[in-house]
């Protein structure tokens, strides 16, 4: 417990080294998956959208594959993959027998042929139906944990299954072979991730709603491209840039976005909302802020301008801690 007390402080004081910040988006990345119903009843169909980025110069063939795990034993990311691996072990898929005229096999939501690039090309939205027994299959006291985990895979090449019988407890059952080279890509060169749909009988959760975006304390409307001067630094420390080059960015959410109440299990809750900032270039002073105090600062960097042109895209994402997410996009131009 003593360590627990200091852990947040340790986080606070830990230097982030000179790693590239999570907010800098220069390669293939899915930033968010939005569900129209983050809380759904058994039998509901949920529509999913993605906020994603890929460099225009990347011409490799890109596969989108969607899969799902229902009521996994662990609600962690790895837990969903373990559930899928178990399902594939119990019901192996033989690619040679796949029939595109039939529903997708096993845990998969879209039809794809393992080892081919064409399956699911740029399929960046998906509908998923919550199984009707997603709650009833669980003990009553475990229903608070009921989720459908939706796996999104974006692979610059072909998605392939790993023999589930060779998997270790933390190995992924899926891998990505690069288009053209057939190279087994490391995890940072493709996208695989999870979005949870909370299964509830009556509870609802609305996604956050933006009321406005602010640039230097004034409303920043969509389509309003701001002009900035870049900072002459190639490091990743924000404080190396002169304060005069920094611009304050903030989001505001509607009061209804901050939900609280009592859930169907009888537990009270107060949502935690955060603002996350991403950009194709530049540095944020803070990449994540609590939504009620969301203001951060942004500077463009000269080094990025040389590498990527002078138009920068910023994504401002609001998330709540019950699976809700919304985003807006803005742009700035480097003088």
């Amino acid at each position: 417990m003593a360590f627990g007390i200091l852990a947040p402080l340790a986080t606070l004081f830990a230097c982030s080294g000179d790693f590239d910040p999570v907010s800098r988006i220069t390669d293939l990345r899915v930033l968010a998956v939005h569900a129209d119903h983050t809380y759904a009843k058994p039998g509901d169909t949920v529509h999913l959208d993605t906020l994603w980025f890929a460099p225009k110069k990347d011409t490799r063939g890109r596969s989108w594959v969607w899969a799902r795990c229902v009521d996994p034993d662990s609600t962690s990311v790895v837990g969903c993959f373990q559930a899928i691996a178990k399902e594939l072990r119990d019901n192996p898929i033989d690619p040679s027998t796949l029939d595109p005229s039939k529903p997708p096999p096993g845990p998969f939501l879209n039809f794809f042929i393992p080892g081919t690039v064409t399956g699911g090309r740029d399929l960046d939205t998906m509908d998923v139906t919550v199984p009707t027994d997603a709650l009833s299959r669980l003990n009553e006291n475990a229903r608070i944990n009921a989720t459908v985990g939706v796996i999104t895979i974006v692979c610059p090449g072909a998605v392939t299954l790993v023999d589930p019988n060779t998997l270790g407890p933390t190995d992924l059952p899926i891998k990505c072979l690069e288009d053209g080279t057939n190279r087994d890509l490391p995890l940072d060169e493709w996208v695989i991730g999870i979005k949870r749909i909370f299964v509830r009988q009556t509870d609802q959760n609305a996604n956050p709603v933006f009321s406005r975006v602010k640039w230097d304390n004034e409303e920043w409307k969509e389509g309003d491209v701001k002009e900035v001067t870049a900072c002459d630094t190639d490091g990743n420390r924000f404080d190396r840039c002169d304060d005069s080059l920094a611009h304050e960015v903030a989001i505001e959410l509607t009061p209804e976005s901050f939900e609280s109440g009592t859930d169907e299990a009888g537990s009270s809750f107060t949502e935690q909302l955060v603002a996350q900032y991403y950009a194709t270039q530049g540095l944020f002073e803070n990449e994540v802020r609590i939504a009620r105090n969301s203001a951060t600062k942004f500077v463009a960097r000269t080094v990025d301008v040389k590498d990527g042109g002078n138009l920068i895209t910023l994504w401002l994402v609001a998330r709540d801690n019950r699976g809700g997410v919304s985003w807006v996009t803005r742009q700035v131009r480097v003088k």
């Binding site: 999570v22 899915v30 930033l31 968010a32 998956v33 990311v77 993959f81 999104t152 992924l172 490391p186 995890l187 940072d188 996208v191 695989i192 991730g193 999870i194 979005k195 949870r196 955060v274 996350q276 994540v288 994402v317 998330r319 699976g323 997410v325």
Partner: peptide
């Protein structure tokens, strides 16, 4: 040995 995305957490 790598990380996978948690789209709910944005990390």
């Amino acid at each position: 040995h790598g990380g996978v995305s948690d789209f709910d957490a944005g990390s």
